[in-house]
């Protein structure tokens, strides 16, 4: 598999105004361009990352982040970790369910637990918590229901 820098160059040569950055072992894509980049990675014959393994929502207190782990079954390559960041208030990120069906349940999970709203998802409902639940429990500022139970100190 190509290195992250090469992938960044390839993407930027296709979409000249897209600013992709490399951070550690992953690629950070601005959310406005994420759909185009996803389509590129999915369909470009040099990558053909046809297998979306995992979708994770992370709360970094200042912003929310979605981490995608992509593999190519055709080429038996991967993983490529792609990160998309969004603000905490609205938390809008375009949905990649049209490209990879495996995002369907995983995006619902990230919406349910972290509160990321995936635009264009066919059926964005809570999946693990019940429908009337008000909060997103995987956010770092979520107040535990049982306040008597102290956080474990080591």
């Amino acid at each position: 598999m190509k290195t992250l820098e090469e992938i960044k160059k390839d993407i930027e040569s296709c979409y000249s105004d897209a600013t992709v950055t490399v951070e550690g072992t992953s690629l950070v894509v601005p959310k406005e361009r994420w759909l185009e980049v996803a389509k590129f990675l999915r369909t470009h014959p040099e990558y053909s990352l046809d297998y979306l393994s995992s979708v994770t929502g992370v709360d970094y207190k200042e912003y929310l982040e979605v981490v995608y782990h992509l593999y190519s079954i055709e080429k038996k390559e991967g993983p490529l970790a792609v990160k998309v960041r969004t603000d905490r208030q609205k938390g809008l990120v375009p949905s990649v369910t049209p490209f990879w069906r495996s995002a369907e349940f995983q995006e619902r999970e990230a919406y349910d637990l972290v509160g990321i709203h995936f635009e264009g998802h066919p059926d964005l409902r809570r999946i693990l918590m019940w429908d009337e639940f008000q909060y997103h429990p995987m956010r770092k500022d979520y107040v535990q229901e049982d306040q008597d139970r102290p956080e474990k100190e080591f």
Partner: peptide
């Protein structure tokens, strides 16, 4: 799969499970 983020402390900052049963239910 397990996706783990460490901030250098004794607790995981993020701990995510990619559960095969869950995703296989998609279809």
């Amino acid at each position: 799969g397990f996706y783990l983020v460490s901030d250098g402390t004794m607790k995981p900052y993020r701990y995510h499970v990619r559960a095969p049963s869950f995703i296989n239910l998609t279809v």
